[in-house]
């Protein structure tokens, strides 16, 4: 196996190595460690309400439904209403992320909620986005034990919670935030722009090829500060 590696690299070196080898190595290091400013389209450089409007417009253009909620605790109610509107059973599986504990589940006693990963029998999955990207109406989902990936891929209906503080203009902003948390990316970063689709049969756009048929994004403010125990003011 190493023989193959050596042969491929030797062939490349024969074509590429110059007298200024130090320079070549420096150029590579520079690219890898100083992330170059790239061209970010002007469209993506919007703030505040204009950013929310752009995200909504771009997401709706690719069949994502977008709803804006007054509070984090309305999530359960909004999810329940959405399921009723689509004639789906009042049942979903939600990411075990502790942030979603404040989604107001107790306000919807008829909504059956399981916390964990989605299996093949689950019809509705609900998860939390790491970021939203206004440029193209894209969600950035980041894997973690409390946010398994399959929630957004196995069920036919997917609901994603996006706190407004996490809405960025361009992809690069979200990557910079993620890199600041850990230099090594998590196992999976899924950028999702609309429900699953295909045009492989007769060029007809059809939703729900393998992933979800329906995608609902709930734009929410941060959850209300949880009641902290005495002495814990962190």
């Amino acid at each position: 196996m190493n023989e193959a590696k050596n042969e491929i690299l030797t062939r490349l070196q024969r074509a590429l190595v110059t007298d200024a080898e130090e320079e070549r190595r420096r150029a590579v290091a520079a690219r890898l460690f100083h992330h170059r400013p790239v061209l970010v389209p002007a469209r993506a450089q919007v703030e505040g309400e204009a950013r929310i409007a752009l995200f909504t417009e771009m997401a709706e253009a690719v069949q994502t439904e977008v709803a804006r909620l007054e509070s984090f605790a309305e999530i359960a109610t909004a999810a329940s209403r959405y399921l009723r509107r689509h004639n789906l059973p009042q049942k979903l599986v939600a990411a075990p992320d502790p942030m979603l504990d404040a989604a107001g589940w107790d306000r919807q006693p008829l909504l059956r909620v399981r916390r964990g990963n989605a299996g093949p029998e689950d019809a509705v999955g609900l998860t939390l986005a790491f970021a939203g990207i206004a440029e193209t109406g894209t969600l950035m989902l980041v894997s973690a034990p409390e946010r398994p990936v399959m929630l957004a891929f196995l069920p036919e209906t997917c609901i994603v919670v996006l706190p407004l503080s996490r809405l960025d203009g361009a992809y690069e902003e979200s990557w910079a935030r993620l890199r600041a948390l850990s230099p090594m990316p998590p196992r999976a970063v899924n950028l999702v722009t609309g429900p699953s689709r295909t045009a492989d049969i007769a060029n007809a756009l059809t939703l729900g090829a393998h992933g979800p048929k329906r995608l609902l994004v709930l734009l929410v403010p941060e959850p209300e500060a949880p009641v902290t125990e005495a002495g814990d003011d962190g």
């Binding site: 990963n117 990316p185 998590p186 950028l191």
Partner: peptide, 17 residues
């Protein structure tokens, strides 16, 4: 619709991958 970046196998305590 889907742009996915994967890095290595599943991490400790991950539920999938």
């Amino acid at each position: 619709t889907y742009t996915t970046v994967v890095t290595g196998p599943r991490r400790e305590d991950d539920l999938d991958g």
